[in-house]
Simulated scan of single mutants.
Amino acid sequence: MDFTKIEELRTTLKMIQPLNTGELKRLRDEFMIDNTYNSNAIEGNVLTLEETALILQLGITIAEKPIKDHLEAIGHKDAFEYIMQLAADETDLTEHVIKTVHSLVLINDANNRGVYRSLPVKILGSEHIPPQPYLVPVQMEELVHDYTKMQQEKHIIEAIAEFHLRFESIHPFIDGNGRTGRLLMNLELIKAGMMPVNIKFTDRLKYYNTFDAYRNGNAIEAMTTLIANYEVEELEKHIQILAQ
């Protein structure tokens, strides 16, 4: 895949006067709320974007909406803020980091937070069967190890795409794998000097299809293209904001 457009947009962005601290925080908070809504909605959370904003910004409880969904919004926000700090510190992606991100995401499940699953699982709506529990620690260790090599041999977006596909295929946790995986994707994008991306709830079928493409032929192109297109979208949006 040709990443020329992304590199050109990144160069353009660097040449424009940056935002001040307050403006940057406002944009980051807006992204966090939108990202929290979309990532949780993909997994079945019924809060609207507006309700998510009210919970995260004002601490308002939404009547007749599940407490679980409220906690998922708060947990995702905490996990997002955590990965932002990790990115600022240029922290390496390790199993400890992965488990910590998951422990924040799964705020409503004290027994399974940050713990690899001990039960076999099946992904709803998919023919893919994740590995048996005893294989999870081995495959996660291999994945983290392989990711270092991926970064050396591939464009960073390709490396992140392959990591995400393999992570979700291992499905290391009993719950919260999707949200955790997408947060890790953004952690690695930010560390690489790119914009975090927001996979939209409305694009969930396109997103799911990238996993089918990978599992049917071990191809990462579909996921790579999806992430790259979102990256272009975020870069163009920020350039437009700065240009104004």
Rank of each mutant, 00 (worst) to 15 (best):
E50H: 04
L24A: 15
D109L: 02
I74M: 10
I220D: 03
T36N: 07
A63D: 11
L143D: 00
T94I: 09
E221W: 00
N20H: 04
P196E: 01
H171K: 05
T225M: 11
K154S: 08
I241L: 14
R28H: 07
Y214H: 09
Q17C: 09
L56Y: 11
V197G: 09
N108R: 09
R26I: 12
G75V: 10
M1V: 15
F31M: 15
L104C: 06
I156C: 03
L9H: 13
I98G: 01
E72Y: 04
S39W: 13
K14A: 14
D92Y: 02
G181I: 06
V144F: 01
E50C: 01
D203I: 08
R166K: 13
S103E: 04
N186T: 03
L47V: 07
E142R: 14
K237W: 00
N216Y: 03
L184V: 01
P131H: 07
I6Y: 02
E72I: 11
E51W: 02
H155D: 09
L235E: 02
H238F: 10
G114S: 06
R28M: 13
V144A: 00
L165T: 10
N218I: 11
F163Y: 01
L86K: 02
D89W: 01
L143F: 00
A110W: 08
D212T: 14
H155S: 02
D29G: 06
M32D: 15
L124R: 03
L226G: 04
E158L: 01
H96M: 10
G176W: 00
A53Q: 09
N177I: 12
F163E: 03
I220C: 02
R26G: 04
T180L: 06
M1L: 15
E168T: 12
F173L: 03
M150A: 10
N111G: 09
F173E: 09
L93M: 07
F163K: 00
T21Q: 12
G125R: 07
P196H: 02
R117M: 05
D92N: 08
T11S: 11
R10C: 13
M223T: 06
P66S: 03
I239C: 07
E50V: 12
G75P: 03
N177P: 05
S169P: 10
K14C: 05
M32I: 15
G125H: 10
N108A: 15
N45E: 10
N112S: 15
L226S: 06
D78W: 01
N216Q: 08
A73Q: 05
F3P: 01
E8I: 07
K68P: 05
I170W: 00
R113W: 07
L124C: 00
V138I: 15
K122C: 01
D29Y: 04
Y82H: 13
D203A: 13
L183N: 01
K77F: 07
K65D: 13
A228W: 05
T91V: 14
M32T: 15
F80V: 13
E236S: 08
D69I: 05
R26V: 12
K191D: 06
Q240W: 11
E142I: 05
H145P: 00
H128P: 09
P18A: 15
Y208Q: 09
T12A: 14
L183Q: 01
R166N: 13
P66G: 05
A73P: 04
K154L: 15
T91L: 05
T148Q: 10
